[in-house]
């Protein structure tokens, strides 16, 4: 996986399996402190201390159909390659928080990539999970919130393809605007 947005897509699958109803994805790029943070917070069923201590082991999985679980370990590796820090906090019945802090200008820090594709796929999930995406570059901010979109839609489903295309363009434009402001 060569984009952070692919890792995000992968990690959020765990939130979906944990029956979360809201997933928050927060990307924060700070030039001054040279830190690029990706935080993923869900309100799913969380993990106990035992599971939490095993979660970044690639040979640990809660599934019975296979013996490996690579998602978290690959993400952790991508983070630690940049001399960053990777933490997971979790509480049973409350939720889980995955914080990956990358060294922003490190040569191994993968680009975010096509985050709008990741978010569209999350929105298309059939469990009707709400997604909040917040992207900060220095002091400018872009926020996308499915709860806000649903309010405007008055019952028209999010998986309407015109809505999906609107969401995709909205996110793309929003982030492009942030990038331009930085310049």
């Amino acid at each position: 996986m060569n984009e952070l947005s692919l890792h995000i897509l992968d990690i959020v699958q765990n939130s979906i399996r944990a029956n979360a109803s809201l997933v928050q994805i927060i990307v924060n790029e700070q030039k001054a402190s040279n830190i690029y943070t990706v935080t993923i917070i869900d309100n799913g069923h969380g993990m106990n201390a035992q599971t939490l201590s095993n979660v970044s082991d690639p040979f640990y999985t809660s599934r019975k159909t296979r013996k490996v679980g690579m998602g978290v370990s690959l993400y952790k590796m991508a983070c630690e390659l940049t001399e960053g820090s990777f933490t997971i906090e979790s509480e049973e019945n409350v939720g889980t928080k995955v914080i990956a802090a990358f060294t922003n200008d490190h040569i191994d820090r993968a680009p975010l990539g096509e985050i709008e594709e990741t978010l569209c796929i999350l929105v298309l999930n059939d469990k009707d999970i709400d997604v909040l995406y917040k992207h900060t570059i220095d002091t400018s901010e872009y926020v996308f919130d499915t709860r806000e979109v649903k309010q405007v839609l008055e019952g028209i489903p999010l998986n309407n393809y015109e809505v999906i295309m609107w969401i995709k363009n909205n996110i793309k434009d929003g982030i492009n605007t942030l990038e331009e402001e930085r310049k």
Partner: peptide
């Protein structure tokens, strides 16, 4: 989020 007006138009078309 910008252009929520466009989203309203999509909603109206879908409602029809």
């Amino acid at each position: 989020m910008k252009s929520l007006d466009d989203l309203k138009k999509i909603r109206e078309a879908a409602q029809q």
